[in-house]
Design a protein around this nucleic acid. Structure first.
Lengths: 112, 112
DNA sequence: CAGTATCCAACACGATACTG
DNA sequence: CAGTATCGTGTTGGATACTG
């Protein structure tokens, strides 16, 4: 998705949504809010995301400083993804929006 | 954009972002928060959006019940777009996210 | 003024196969 | 297990021209 354009001098919102936009990143935030998670588990929890797309989204959140990737050099390999302080901060800022969505879920999904 | 998938039974967030996702809808919310605006003025304020894309986004927000479209049958035609109560509600829920984006704008745009 | 119609480009997503 | 590579698809966005 493209969110940030040239019109965002005024609006920190565009910055935020550029970070968190797309079909999966918010689900990801939700899953990771529960604590560190491994790749395979995240994939199963999101039910429907392909490995490629999941990896892409994790990389972007990692690049933005939202997600931390911890590699444990074991056999078989283990990787854990977790929220950084910035990520937890973002999650808190997201709460009211989620509540709004919950409050209005029926009316909004009805109108598609 | 597709935001809402099959994984959103749990997450009102997906509902919200489905409504407000895409490159322009949040800028639109920002512009309309200042009060009723006409098509041409919105277009100039967003600087870079095409007429087609602006119209599409306004239609979607209108369909979602976020934006009200008032047509004044004059010559030349005049149309004013404004936020509905639901839209104003959404704007309030968006505020913390915008503050987060503002607070972290530098770090985020640097890594963008 | 406030759009619609058309055509094109970019990107995110999706499915599958393969690898350290 | 945790990815990467490749290819195909659909939606969104962009540019331009035209209309009530």
């Amino acid at each position: 998705m493209h969110i940030a354009g040239d019109a965002d001098q005024l609006c920190g919102m565009a910055v935020a949504i550029d970070v968190v936009g797309g079909k999966w990143k918010l689900h990801l935030m939700w899953v990771l809010a529960e604590g560190p998670q491994r790749f395979g588990r995240i994939r199963r929890m999101l039910d429907g995301v392909s490995e490629k797309v999941l990896a892409e989204n994790l990389r972007r959140l990692e690049a933005a400083g939202i997600v931390h990737r911890e590699l444990y050099p074991e056999v078989p390999p283990r990787v854990e993804y977790s929220l950084t302080p910035l990520g937890r901060d973002l999650n808190e800022a997201l709460a009211p929006l989620e509540e709004w969505g919950d409050r209005n879920r029926e009316i909004l999904t009805a109108r598609g």
